[in-house]
């Protein structure tokens, strides 16, 4: 493995339009995916049990996956074998979008009566259920949480820089940093859960980090534009790539171990941070360059 060096990007070769086109096109595609999914299924992203009602069971059994699939009155949305050191025969079984609370409560009984126990271990190792009405209310709370967080971040961005273009650049890039991972979730079939909501909120924080760094270097320091951008990229890319790697490792390890919360946070943050790299160093740089060289100063 070689040393990790941040490459110098030759911004002078590309016009502002060229630079901004890629992230904007991707954002447009993402919005298209989300609205398409909304029209087809009624929700932009598949809602997990936390937000649609349902259950998640971790079971330990010697029965096969096929037998697990048939053990329940309702077909599970997913069955995942857990691959962790010293653990055999464990599976995570998910059910989402169940309307009737009675059915949800019956699932763990069905597991216990229809599956083979693995030695002395209990069949249902962990169980998490949410009734539809609880899920409905969690959904509203999560939406409000994201809205408040986004609004708060926007206000803070304007307070910090007090000029329109740099501030709106931060807000736009944060927006895109949330929308593109959402579209990714929709395409990859990752369900929206409490963990992914936490990841999206963290993303707001991470996304703004690199934007503030870039804005700060360009606007508040004297010196050549490209020199400032280069220095900001060197720091910013180091930061983001380090976090990305940590999240990737966490996401992979946690999904092998069946720790759903950590897995979804890891994977969504990885995708989101990758999006942030693109948005910060293509969209924001082009916006700032336009502002610096051509924009009307207020």
């Amino acid at each position: 493995m070689g040393y990790f060096d941040v490459p110098e990007i030759e911004y002078t070769r590309y016009s502002n339009r060229q630079l901004a086109a890629v992230p904007l096109a991707l954002l447009a595609v993402a919005l298209l995916v989300l609205s398409g999914s909304f029209l087809l299924t009624g929700a932009p992203v598949q809602l997990g049990m936390d937000f649609a009602g349902g259950a998640e069971l971790t079971i330990q059994t010697t029965s096969s996956e096929e037998e697990i699939r048939n053990a329940f009155d309702r077909e599970p949305d997913s069955i995942q074998a857990i691959q962790a050191p010293g653990v055999d025969n464990q599976y995570t079984v998910q059910f989402a979008g169940i309307e009737d609370e009675g059915i949800i409560q019956g699932l763990s009984d069905q597991a216990e009566s229809n599956l083979e126990a693995d030695g002395d271990a209990s069949i249902v190792q962990s169980e998490s259920t949410a009734s539809p009405s609880f899920a409905q209310q969690a959904q509203q709370t999560a939406l409000l949480g994201i809205a408040v967080a986004f609004l708060g971040m926007s206000v803070l961005a304007f307070l910090l820089f007090r000029t329109f273009v740099p501030s709106i650049a931060i807000v736009a890039s944060a927006f895109s940093d949330i929308v593109i991972p959402l579209a990714f979730m929709s395409l990859a079939g990752i369900q929206l859960s409490l963990g992914t909501v936490a990841a999206l909120l963290m993303l707001i924080g991470y996304s703004v980090d690199s934007d503030i760094l870039l804005n700060n270097h360009i606007l508040r320091r004297s010196g050549d534009f490209y020199e400032s951008v280069h220095r900001a990229t060197r720091t910013g890319i180091t930061m983001t790539v380090t976090s990305m790697m940590a999240m990737l490792v966490m996401g992979i390890a946690a999904s092998l171990f069946g720790v759903e919360l950590l897995a979804s946070i890891g994977i969504i943050l990885f995708v989101g941070l990758a999006t942030d790299l693109m948005n910060t160093y293509m969209l924001n740089v082009s916006l700032l360059r336009w502002y610096k060289f051509e924009g009307v100063r207020s």
């Binding site: 936390d50 969690a138 709370t141 999560a142 409000l144 949480g145 994201i146 408040v148 967080a149 986004f150 708060g152 971040m153 803070l156 961005a157 910090l160 409490l194 909501v197 936490a198 909120l201 963290m202 707001i204 924080g205 991470y206 703004v208 980090d209 503030i212 760094l213 700060n216 919360l261």
Partner: peptide, 25 residues
């Protein structure tokens, strides 16, 4: 200055979760 600004945004982004009752979060 950068660190402080970044910290402030992270705190603002996560404070709704610290107050709202979203279970585990």
């Amino acid at each position: 200055w950068i660190i402080g600004a970044a910290a402030a945004t992270t705190i603002i982004a996560l404070s709704p979760l610290a107050v709202l009752s979203l279970g585990d979060l």
